[in-house]
Design a protein around this nucleic acid. Structure first.
Length: 596
RNA sequence: GGUCGCAUAGCUCAGCUGGAUAGAGCACCUGCCUUCUAAGCAGGCGGUCCUAGGUUCGAAUCCUAGUGCGAUCACCA
């Protein structure tokens, strides 16, 4: 039971005993640091049940708690706020109960339904950029947070491997490729992306020529020979043309190999892959079923629609008049297929940008109408775009921040800073490189994850990502320091963190603050899971580390600490804080270094 | 035009179900490295919480209207 739960019972009992009234709930908050006390009971809401002066009621309740509850050792009332002081013993007992738990904060897996989390979901015609990075980091972290909250999780993606976009790259490759193949220094996704850009350049040139020949720009865009050729290619692909399919397979394989390197670089993984080239057919089957059951309706031209006007939305097309699938078709198919493949899945999370809010609203509604009971457990993890100062990133125009390049730049920056600080001299080259990556990548991940997912991020490549203050390296530094302290303690006088300390500890304010902060961690994971927000974990970790840094700079832990019992306690406390930092960063997907 | 989202310090962001004098980091200014790592600590400066109404004992938080920015409303994905 948490401290608040315990106190809630007693406050209710107090109101019952003193005023013979029933309290629905009790409102708590942390006591502000200018007042004495640890937990504050807000008296105002009680006035609905108990009439009287809030200050007087606060006094009476406080006195009751002091008389009847062991862990309460004092109180004071300021206006309508009852500040309750909690005994050190409570905090020490709590700390003892968690200090040897390396999985502190993580809930035991509950035996309920699994969640499938979709993220990344790239097109196969271009490399991953900063926008994908936000998607991938969010999806991965939310998956890990859900796991830590006690859920079983499958990570998945839908790969948009067919369509006009990949045909454009293919066509450009056919025309200008001269048999170029990926090399170790030039990944396949980059290669294919280059031909996508080349297509666009050549296409624009054609359009311009047509316009000088007198066509309107609108017509020219439709009539440019390259576009017509690409569309022809798509038709051939759908018809199963051997040459086209062979080229499509070859180029997609190049892209997948390139993506794998990037994912590995970022440090994310997947449990299941779905390909649009498979699922769009599936969607058609379910559309046919929905047509029979009356969820969908067919127009005279043969197109199939879902009428959502009664739900305040529009009519939505689910099949074109020529019988081909649209985006919605395949998403319906994919969702149903996933549940068939993983029957233990009871809900899904889609990590997709907020430009598709409407699409998912419609998708979820259609799945509900089709009668799937799991449709009520679908969640669109909608996040804001990552924009540049110049505006939106556009792959075609080459105005993107490439994922691989960005990671390399962050690693290089970490190296520069480390050298400036002149640390790491005694490290060998491999260790150094690994550390630069840990710090650089950590800084990038933290920078993105600490922001509320639904807010958009403006990324200015000229302004460097922070390595100080509310940033990953600050937190990693604290972790490394703690490991250093543990080594020091062991080498100085043989104390290890698991050594028992006795109860003759009088908690220093900074020690108590740390324990209070630790106490928050499990519920922080639960609310981060409920809200699908890694930002909560990031900000929590920062607060914990700030408290630790203050503790570390103001109190002697090993050296200069005469009291062996206190040494043991502080070492143990440091170790547990370190473990909590590690656990928190693990679910953000950020590594911590043993030294830095 | 309809719908959805966002708006807090010069900049980047916290602020949970309404609660005490709105908090951090960066930047700027002061101190602190011959004890465990200064990517740090201690402190200072900095606010019309977009505007106007409303609900409430109490509003950055909830409601209404407006302003600004973004997204979306395709037989594109």
């Amino acid at each position: 039971m948490t401290l608040q739960e315990t106190l809630e019972i007693h406050v209710k009992a107090a109101i019952k005993a003193l005023f013979n009234s029933e309290l629905e709930s009790v409102e708590f908050q942390a006591t502000r640091k200018e007042f004495a006390g640890d937990v504050t009971v807000v008296v105002f809401p009680m006035l609905r049940v108990v009439k009287g002066n809030p200050a007087v009621i606060g006094e009476q309740v406080g006195q009751y708690l002091l008389d009847n509850v062991d862990l309460v050792k004092g109180f004071n009332v300021v206006k309508g706020f009852l500040n309750v002081e909690i005994s050190d013993k409570y905090y020490l007992d709590f700390f003892k109960s968690i200090k040897e738990d390396d999985t502190f904060g993580f809930a035991k897996q509950k035996d309920d339904k699994a969640v499938m989390v979709e993220y990344s979901s790239p097109n196969t015609n271009k490399p991953l950029h900063l926008g994908h990075v936000r998607n991938v980091l969010l999806g991965y972290s939310v998956s890990e947070i859900l796991k830590a909250s006690g859920k079983k999780v499958y990570k998945t993606q839908i790969i948009n491997d067919r369509g006009i976009h990949i045909c454009k790259s293919m066509l450009a490759y056919q025309k200008f490729g001269n048999g170029e193949v990926p090399t170790e220094d030039f990944k396949g996704d980059k290669l294919v992306g280059n031909y996508y850009v080349k297509f666009d350049q050549a296409y624009k040139q054609e359009v311009a020529e047509l316009v000088t020949q007198g066509q309107s720009e609108e017509d020219a865009k439709k009539n440019a020979p390259l576009l017509l050729e690409a569309q022809e290619m798509l038709i051939k692909w759908e018809a199963g043309d051997e040459d086209v399919v062979a080229l499509w397979k070859k180029m997609n394989e190049w892209v997948y190999a390139g993506f794998d390197v990037t994912y590995k670089n970022i440090g994310v993984d997947f449990d299941a892959y779905y390909y649009e080239s498979n699922t769009y057919l599936l969607g058609k089957e379910f559309v046919a079923e929905g047509l029979k059951s009356g969820v969908f309706e067919e127009d005279p031209d043969g197109s199939v629609w879902c009428d959502l006007t009664e739900d305040g939305l529009d009519r939505k097309i689910v099949l074109r008049s020529d019988g081909t699938a649209v985006y919605m078709t395949q998403d319906i198919g994919t969702a149903i297929q996933r549940i068939k493949d993983y029957p233990d899945v009871g809900g899904m999370v889609y990590t997709v940008g907020n430009e598709q809010d409407y699409h998912f609203k419609v998708l979820f509604l259609i799945l509900k109408k089709l009668g799937f009971d799991w449709a009520k457990n679908l969640f669109h993890l909608s996040y804001g775009m990552v924009d540049l100062p110049s505006g939106k990133m556009k792959s075609r125009e080459g105005t993107v921040v490439d994922a691989d390049d960005l990671i390399q730049e962050m690693t290089d920056t970490a190296e520069e800073i480390s050298k400036e600080l002149g640390k790491l001299e005694e490290y060998d080259e491999d260790e150094k490189q690994a550390l630069y990556k840990t710090i650089g990548l950590g800084a990038l991940k933290y920078y993105i994850l600490k922001v509320d997912p639904k807010k958009r991020i403006l990324f200015d490549p000229k302004e460097s990502i922070d390595f100080q203050g509310n940033a990953a390296p600050y937190i990693q530094m604290a972790y490394a320091r703690i490991q250093s302290i543990l080594r020091k303690a062991n080498s100085t006088n043989g104390i290890v963190a698991s050594d028992a300390f006795n109860d003759a500890i009088v908690l220093h304010e900074k020690e108590k603050q740390l324990i209070k902060q630790l106490e928050q961690f499990p519920e922080m994971i639960q609310s981060a899971a409920e809200q699908h927000s890694p930002a909560l974990i990031a900000n929590y970790t920062y607060d914990l580390v700030k408290d630790f840094s203050s503790f570390y700079q103001n109190l002697p832990i090993v050296l200069g600490n005469e009291d062996v019992n206190s040494q043991k306690f502080r070492i143990s406390l440091s170790k547990t804080v370190g473990q909590t930092i590690k656990n928190a960063f693990q679910i953000l997907g950020i590594e911590v270094p043993e030294r830095m």
